[in-house]
């Protein structure tokens, strides 16, 4: 029996009021298992990012529950939800959102600094994770001096530095060329995925489907299908 890191129960989200009300996600139910790489795929506007935001404690759903260890995440206070994001989730944003005025190592250290670590030890840990992603030689450079692929790896190192249980990646290959994108996702799966961790990726890049353990297909805010990944299912 799989060990679930997140259980999503009939979550829905709509925006706007009255006639302008639009449903972005409609009653979606699924589980995220420990040790799996789960993809959420679908065309633009299908509700992927909204769904990802709700399960990661960023966007409050209008209905349903997001259960973590049997507790509804959205029944917690805002501060506790922020603690959940900081301590248990690692984010890789689509646009990376690296800080151009900080060095690469300092960028990676940010989650630890927000946890209250002192600056030198957090930056030291940042250096260690830069080494994991193969960028230790770039530690003192600002992110703007790095290529897109390198920036992506810095964003991954930042997501991993707090050793989160769940890694969330939003369109990780969107700004990368085909080979770089595949290499990055392969690196993530080989290096970062383990039995104590789940990785959730939102993408519509079919070139990286081969690395998924399961794929959730979204369409018009609904869960259309859950399928095994190509490596496992075929």
């Amino acid at each position: 029996m799989p060990n679930h890191s997140i259980e999503v129960r009939s979550v829905g989200k709509s925006f706007g009021e009255g006639q302008a009300r639009t449903s972005a996600v409609r009653s979606v139910t699924f589980d995220v298992n420990m040790g799996e790489m789960l993809y959420i795929v679908g065309p633009s506007g299908s509700g992927k990012t909204t769904l990802l935001s709700m399960i990661s404690g960023i966007l409050r759903p209008n209905e349903g529950q997001v259960l973590v260890e049997g507790t509804d995440l959205w029944s917690l206070s805002d501060d506790r939800i922020a603690d959940f994001r900081l301590n248990k989730i690692g984010f890789v944003f689509q646009d990376f959102h690296l800080f151009p005025r900080l060095s690469t190592a300092e960028n990676v250290a940010i989650p630890l600094i927000l946890r209250g670590e002192d600056w030198p030890s957090a930056v030291k840990a940042g250096m260690r994770f830069l080494e994991v992603v193969g960028l230790s030689s770039r530690a003192d450079l600002p992110p703007v001096k790095l290529s897109g692929g390198e920036q992506q790896r810095v964003a991954i190192a930042r997501a991993m530095v707090g050793e989160p249980d769940i890694l969330i990646l939003d369109e990780p290959t969107a700004s990368l060329d085909g080979d770089t994108g595949k290499n990055i996702v392969e690196f993530i799966k080989k290096t970062l995925l383990n039995e104590q961790r789940s990785i959730v990726i939102v993408t519509h890049d079919a070139r990286i489907y081969e690395f998924a353990d399961r794929i959730l297909s979204m369409e018009d805010g609904r869960l259309k299908a859950i399928s095994e990944g190509q490596r496992h299912g075929k």
Partner: peptide, 22 residues
Amino acid sequence: VLEALPERGQGRRGRHYRGRLI
């Protein structure tokens, strides 16, 4: 997951603000 979270104002986050100020 949730039970392991430090309470507000406790644990490592509440230790000091120096890093955030830097």
